[in-house]
Amino acid sequence: MSVAPAAQARSSTGTAAGGRSLGSYLLMPLLLAGVLLALYLYVSNQELDSIEAAP
């Protein structure tokens, strides 16, 4: 049996070590942070109903 195809498939990720770049690790957390910030700003600018407003 040969294990060369599995090793070749693993090493074709782009970098020499087979790892991911720093940008690919940061992309999703930064994207999610941006979405959460947009939702926070949207909700914080909504007018409260009378039952939710502070007395």
Rank of each mutant, 00 (worst) to 15 (best):
M1K: 06
V3G: 10
A4D: 15
A4G: 12
P5C: 01
A6C: 07
A7T: 13
A7W: 12
Q8V: 12
Q8F: 09
Q8L: 13
A9E: 08
A9G: 03
R10I: 13
R10H: 09
T13G: 07
G14Q: 08
T15N: 13
A17H: 07
G18I: 05
G19H: 10
G19M: 09
G19W: 10
R20A: 14
S21Q: 10
S21N: 11
S21L: 12
G23A: 11
G23W: 14
S24K: 09
Y25L: 07
L26V: 06
M28F: 15
L30W: 12
L30E: 06
L31W: 15
L32K: 02
L32M: 10
A33T: 14
G34L: 11
V35D: 02
V35A: 06
V35C: 04
L37R: 13
L37C: 11
A38W: 10
Y40D: 03
Y40G: 05
Y40R: 03
Y40T: 03
Y42G: 02
Y42E: 03
V43S: 00
S44F: 01
S44G: 00
Q46W: 00
Q46D: 00
L48D: 02
L48W: 01
D49R: 14
S50L: 08
I51F: 04
I51S: 04
A54D: 10
P55I: 03
P55K: 08
